[in-house]
């Protein structure tokens, strides 16, 4: 269970001597229970990825706290084997010196030192994300963007984390693979009781997989809605956002 309480974050703006700061997150609070898929929707530059980085403990919030099962997510031990992520930029998602196999092995080896078991698991994982086992020995520069992204997803789910953050993870995939991955995520949610934080622009994908959606704007939560209630959003911004989708 992930609990975000009163989180604020600002970045330095401008040159070396400027003291001006840009507030990226302004007092954000929400919760995500185990086994829930939480969507975060918002326009570009609204601070979604920043919020994601804070939830992963990569950066520290200026104010407030982020707790995972009651403990500070900043502590490495709290995250170890429990939290995982897939990021937006697939180009640098895999170490250029690693083969696909080595990349997926990295989080796997934390939980299970047995190499043989891990090997067969990698085959299974690759199959699940729609890749042939022959991809094992490829280097990242030999993969297409979508393939690299799928390896990233396989790597993220390999250690069966309890919480998985996907930051625009499926945007670079084509529709058929997108649905395949979405179905895989749904399946995993049921098997392992995983919870997802699903950051996206794509409301349809969010609606397909999420139980609850946070509508995010300018570093603030505009509205939190259950997916069944998506039609009856209250705030103007959320209405506008949905409107633009329908007219599409």
């Amino acid at each position: 269970m992930l609990k975000v309480k009163g989180v604020k974050k600002s970045y330095k703006k401008g040159g070396l001597f400027s003291t001006e700061r840009q507030e990226v997150l302004k007092d954000v609070s929400f919760e995500c229970e185990n086994g829930v898929c939480l969507g975060i929707i918002g326009e570009s530059g609204s601070g979604k990825s920043t919020l994601g980085r804070l939830m992963l403990g990569i950066e520290k919030p200026d104010h407030g706290s982020i707790l995972f099962n009651g403990k500070e997510v900043e502590n490495r031990e709290v995250r170890l084997g429990n939290i995982s992520a897939v990021f937006q930029d697939y180009k640098s998602s895999i170490n250029p010196f690693f083969t696909v196999e080595e990349a997926i092995m990295e989080p796997l080896i934390i939980k299970n030192k047995n190499k043989k078991e891990n090997q067969s698991k990698i085959d299974q994982l690759l199959y699940r994300v729609g890749l042939n086992p022959s991809y094992r020995n490829k280097y990242p520069h030999e993969l297409s963007g979508g393939e690299a992204q799928r390896v990233g997803i396989a790597r993220a789910i390999s250690a069966e984390p309890t919480c998985l953050l996907l930051d625009e993870a499926i945007s670079s995939l084509d529709i058929s693979v997108q649905t395949q991955v979405l179905n895989l995520l749904k399946e995993l949610k049921n098997i392992y009781n995983m919870s997802f934080i699903f950051i996206t622009h794509d409301i349809q994908a969010a609606a397909y997989i999420c139980d609850r959606v946070i509508i995010f704007k300018d570093g603030k939560i505009e509205e939190i809605v259950e997916i069944e209630q998506l039609k009856n959003v209250q705030s103007d911004y959320a209405k506008q956002l949905l409107q633009s989708l329908i007219t599409f």
């Binding site: 490495r76 709290v78 995982s84 998602s93 993220a156």
Partner: peptide
């Protein structure tokens, strides 16, 4: 800054 380093950090690798 690269994503694979971020991934390792997020997964709690030392």
């Amino acid at each position: 800054e690269l994503e694979y380093v971020k991934f390792s950090k997020a997964s709690g690798i030392s």
